[in-house]
Write a protein that binds this DNA or RNA. Structure first.
Lengths: 153, 153
DNA sequence: GTCTATTCCTTGTCCGGATAACTTTTCTCA
DNA sequence: TGAGAAAAGTTATCCGGACAAGGAATAGAC
């Protein structure tokens, strides 16, 4: 019937790297979400807090850069975190366009939990992997990252 | 100031595998979305259509399994695709609970574009990688997948 | 045969991610 | 200096992903 039957029969299984990335990312994100649940944070928010804890108050656009997000997502997320008392917003004294975001004292109570969750995530992710395998995987991921970011031009 | 400064100063950079997975997944998904744009589909919908094209009409729960999604997401996605004329729903003749989903003839017009987009995605993902590097990366991802799915218990 | 447990699906809610459209402010440079 | 380009945020609209709750039908146990 179809003159492309042989190519098509394999279409769901024949994109090995792409599908593997999909599945690993999904599992990894789910695991991160589960570990983070006890902190009450949603995946992504902890990255914002970690950036604020580490680098101090900064503009939203800096946070976007730090966690590799985008402006609308960050604006919304910051609003929610502000409402939750995790974060404070104030106008930049030197740039009328910018908003300075800082972590509240209340957010510090989460710091140990967040650090623990991330450590646990990394532990679970690399459990059973030798250091050689780990660096191999890391090198592979770095390679993929550079290839993909070049492809995104 | 902080008695944990040394540990904490590295908190954004010291989870190499986890962060690498995050970044690769993000780039990969963005690339997939861009390639898919010309089909008018949103990322995820093409997986549903590919499953229907390849395996024929099936229940929603089978589609959930095929694309590794979940029931609520699938229900909503199918509804949208039904509204868009890509998919048809009918009650199962043998199971009163189940719904049989099938691809419409109209959806077939997208098949070549979708196949092309996925081929291009894989090509861009693996461009510049030797076959040895490819299998190395694939093995690494498979390893991560098995570790992560075991951790998700 | 009935009562319970399971399965399949749906709806509602909340979240992040992406795009587009827009406002306000700053920067650039001719 | 003054016009236009660029940057920072916001809001809107979609989308998929996750969770909770619930209805309806089937399957299983007794």
């Amino acid at each position: 019937m179809s003159e492309h039957a042989t190519e098509r029969a394999a279409s769901l299984g024949a994109r090995p790297v792409s599908h593997a990335i999909f599945r690993v990312a999904r599992l990894h994100k789910a695991l991160a979400g589960r570990l983070l649940r006890e902190t009450g944070l949603h995946p992504g928010q902890e990255l914002v807090l970690m950036a604020l804890w580490d680098q101090g108050p900064q503009r939203q656009v800096d946070l976007v850069e730090a966690v590799d997000s985008d402006a609308p997502t960050m604006a919304r997320s910051i609003s929610r975190m502000e409402k939750a008392g995790l974060v404070r917003r104030s106008p930049s004294p030197t740039d009328g366009r910018a908003v300075i975001v800082e972590a509240t004292e209340a957010s510090l109570a989460l710091r140990d939990k967040v650090d623990g969750a991330w450590a646990e995530l990394e532990r679970l992710t690399t459990t059973g992997l030798g250091t050689a395998q780990q660096s191999e995987i890391l090198a592979g991921l770095a390679l993929l990252e550079s290839v993909l970011s070049k492809a995104g031009d």
